[in-house]
Design a protein around this nucleic acid. Structure first.
Lengths: 137, 137
DNA sequence: CCGTATCCATTTGGATACTG
DNA sequence: CAGTATCCAAATGGATACGG
């Protein structure tokens, strides 16, 4: 099992993973999309909106720990990227409903897959972490 | 507890998405895992290590824009969580090889799915963003 | 009910310089 | 080659107060 790998020529072994290759601007689609939905709350908002549209405060209650400010900021960002649609009904008091767009629904699929992975592997990560911390005491 | 809730359309619809439900500690697996791999560089490191193990500087060259410090920090974090294995060969100069573990390989699958989504939908997000910014000029 | 505005502590991460 | 150490600017995000 000799692993004498000498291939160290800065070999361009990228472009093998769709979405991760770099474009002309030097960034890659994955980096770009992560900059949009890779923050603290976006994925949680998306997944909570996936079954059905929700109003602002209902959404806020269902996402434990999110502040009013961050929910507003997150929703604006998602709306800006076309993942969420905001509908206002000018009643008194006003009702604002948030819903996933078609694109928003489509990204919910791979996100849910990641969620499933997280659920199944969280204990393993926790164990690995404890082992690591114990070893490097 | 808040009972002054007039939930008209919005039903209590959580716990429907695996990995996103909250546990006793108030957090959910998804939140927990995102805190680990949701940073700027982790996903890019994982996807670059997926085809084959790589040495430190080769990895650094293949991830454009990453600083030496952040590559070290990211790799330590991934190693701590058991997603990456670090192998040192005490030669001169030393050779350090990084490889995905089995768990690391397994998370690369949903990540790749997200990458594929990113590749296909980046233009749509960009268009939506420009439309939004134009409207709210 | 659904926000916006302001303030401020914490975190993040690049630049730089230095080691075995 | 593969790091570590230090410094510091910028981004993040909670708390709070106020407005339509």
């Amino acid at each position: 099992m000799d692993v004498n790998v000498k291939t160290e020529g800065a070999a361009p072994l990228l472009h093998t993973h769709p979405g991760f290759e770099r474009g002309a601007n030097g960034s890659c689609p994955m980096r770009d999309v992560l900059d949009r939905i890779g923050d603290t709350w976006s994925l949680l908002v998306i997944i909570n909106l996936q079954p059905a549209p929700m109003r602002f405060n209902a959404l806020r209650r269902s996402i434990e720990g999110i502040s009013q400010r961050m929910l507003t900021v997150t929703l604006r960002s998602l709306e800006r990227d076309g993942l969420v649609r905001r509908t206002v009904r000018p009643t008194t008091p006003p009702e604002v409903e948030y819903a996933l767009t078609d694109i928003g629904q489509s990204i919910a699929v791979p996100i849910a897959a990641l969620g499933l992975w997280a659920q199944r592997n969280q204990p393993l990560l926790q164990q690995a972490r404890e082992r690591f911390d114990a070893t490097n005491a």
